[in-house]
Design a protein around this nucleic acid. Structure first.
Lengths: 151, 151
DNA sequence: ATAGATGCAAACTTTTTGCACCACA
DNA sequence: TGTGGTGCAAAAAGTTTGCATCTAT
């Protein structure tokens, strides 16, 4: 994520361009991996001098609302975020080992919406499709992966 | 969910057959709708006389672990559960209005796994596919739906 | 100049844990 | 009769809120 791209996104959203917002976006984009709010906070604190955790939450919420970041679903009770400014319809392949996210363009779900409508008269408004696995690099490195913790 | 079916599930999991476990399963299966732990608790307390909320969490965790209940993903930070003892691979259409869940057999995702393997050498281990929308009945009733709150 | 952004502390919600007591097998 | 289940109280973890101060526009 180039800084200029971040500025443009914020202007489009009519949010003020602040160092904190730019840094949250840079951090999430830099690793192409999903992170929790606290992990983002730990990574950007050294760069910014200081920033509060509530500010990180506020920024992530705004960006998720604006669909500039995507929430990743896991069954722990933590929310994870991934920068995804690309608005085309697509899905994500997420690596269970290194947490990196790859885009998956293919989405064969149009037929499903039709089936539901035909069967019961229901209407599909959205879907979550998240593909979990182990990425190429982590597969080659063998099990255990790089690990990636809060610190 | 017949009581005998509940007993069989518990025996298969080598869990003791207790009134609390049977009642949690009955409650989740009865409505064909997803509920939070607290909602389950509120519904079964009158029947059982008394049960602690931690017990409900423990039971739901065991059943989710055993894949007898499925977790439903929402962006609030509450976990929702749905009884789904059917082990065939399938997905769910969930109604945003009444929370009822319908099974969707169709799953065209085999091609996606192949694409990921070819492209980067990655390996797909699982996927989450949750289809959100408004069910036939709620569509016919018009917007607003039946509502379904914790009480 | 001013509306919006942020830090800090404290609250809040959901979920988990510890331990004594109880009940199914 | 003993292992596993449960109630209760308290803690933990993640997230949100209130308000005073600061800053981008």
């Amino acid at each position: 994520m180039e800084q200029e791209q971040g500025r443009e996104i914020l202007r489009r959203l009519r949010l003020k361009v602040t160092p904190r917002r730019l840094e949250v976006m840079r951090c999430l984009g830099e690793e192409q991996a999903y992170l929790s709010a606290e992990e983002v906070w730990n990574r950007i604190r050294p760069v910014l001098g200081s920033i509060g955790l509530p500010t990180v939450y506020r920024i992530l919420d705004e960006l998720a609302e604006a669909q500039v970041v995507t929430r990743i679903f896991r069954s722990d009770r933590t929310q994870y975020y991934f920068l995804c400014p690309n608005q085309e319809h697509h899905h994500h392949f997420i690596c269970e080992s290194c947490r990196r996210v790859e885009d998956v363009d293919r989405c064969n779900l149009d037929g499903v919406a039709g089936e539901i409508a035909r069967r019961s008269g229901g209407l599909v408004t959205s879907h979550i499709l998240q593909i979990n696995g182990v990425c190429g690099e982590c597969s080659r490195l063998g099990e255990g992966g790089r690990g990636r913790d809060a610190a």
